[in-house]
Design a protein around this nucleic acid. Structure first.
Lengths: 205, 205
DNA sequence: ATCCGATGTGGACGCCGACAACATCACGGT
DNA sequence: ACCGTGATGTTGTCGGCGTCCACATCGGAT
């Protein structure tokens, strides 16, 4: 029981703060990321975080990035599981799994999902036409595969990315925390399939 | 200049509080609905609201209902403007305007839109299969028109409501306050048309 | 060895939501 | 006519929060 009396300087505080904040966001959502609670859990006094972040919003932005990364990760992992020979069927299946992974993440990690889409301002929003990062990049890659194998005509490729994204995002919001949050799981699954079918027909139908 | 010295009892406080809170939500979103600020603007002391609402969440729920109502209103007003003779074209145009009105409301009233979808719990969520109220009811009505005139097959009617809703809702979130919030208005309009086309093809294509 | 900048602490301020005790007033039963 | 009682509004208070400030500690460059 060596009671080393907590050195004055933590030495590795910043990443610990972010990790702690991520766990807090995971369990209680963005509003649950409370500076004083993060400091408490990190075994550090309130205010310590101010040596590493301008304010609460700065920490939350970092947590948002982490959540975004995790969403991208589960999407990539999921589409990698598609085992299909025919190129067209393969690309279609990968698109479908992309959507499913997105919705499942929203439902299984509601706190992180909400935090991912809670950024204060487009500070790092690239002024260019498109900012291709994270989940949006994954989706675009899959859509390009559909074009490459001839399943999706180039003119329909225009706006298909935003269309797919909007569909799965809206479905996640409505069913996860929105007005349809009380739809039982079985019905929810059927609805998701119907929604994915709708996009399918709209793209390649 | 009769300075009537503010009678001890307001006499009509509750509706005034709700109106004030709605305006606050309109300009600053759900987090801006601060009990003490509402009381201040109503010319009443803090705590007065507690005689009419259990807590902040109760007031916010009422504001959410109001926002929901306003969304329904603009949707109804919009689809009423469709002037089209051919029944099929008319129904299709009404569906499209429904979506446009939804997105335009989200973009022009971001505070109210966010507040509408910020309900604490499904307290009044009907356990039945569907809760047909508000904007969702309007959408279902329009979709039923499509079926009635033969433009939409009954089997595709299944889940079409949630699909349309998810699409316009997701688009609103992404473009209104989400990652695509910095897309310039012209490009945004083109994207909306592409997204509406996608749904169109998915339904009747 | 010394100084200095980076990092962590303790205290304060103003804001908030919520609770409790008190003040005012309209109305109804006697 | 009177009183009292319940609804409504006020003041005071508490704990919690984000943020600013002054101070403490420590490691490394000079």
């Amino acid at each position: 029981m060596s009671n080393r009396p907590q050195p004055y300087h933590h030495g590795n505080l910043r990443p610990v703060l972010v990790d702690t904040a991520v766990e807090l966001a995971r369990s209680t959502g963005p509003d649950g990321v409370v500076l004083r609670e993060v400091a408490r859990r990190a075994g550090v006094s309130h205010n310590a975080a101010y040596r590493h972040f301008d304010d609460r919003a700065a920490l939350l932005a970092e947590v948002s990035d982490r959540a975004y990364d995790e969403l991208e990760r589960v999407m990539r992992e999921r589409i990698a599981t598609v085992d299909e020979a025919d190129p067209v069927e393969r690309a279609l299946a990968r698109l479908r799994e992309t959507g499913r992974a997105y919705v499942e993440f929203a439902l299984s990690e509601p706190g992180l999902f909400a935090t991912a889409f809670t950024s204060s301002a487009g500070a790092d929003a690239h002024t260019g036409v498109e900012e291709l990062t994270g989940p949006y990049l994954v989706l675009n890659t899959v859509l390009d595969e559909l074009v490459a194998c001839g399943a999706l005509s180039p003119e329909r490729r225009q706006g298909a990315d935003v269309g797919c994204w909007a569909m799965v995002h809206g479905f996640s919001e409505l069913v996860g925390t929105g007005p349809l949050r009380d739809v039982p799981p079985e019905a929810r699954e059927l609805l998701l399939e119907a929604v994915l079918d709708l996009v399918h027909r709209g793209l390649v139908g």
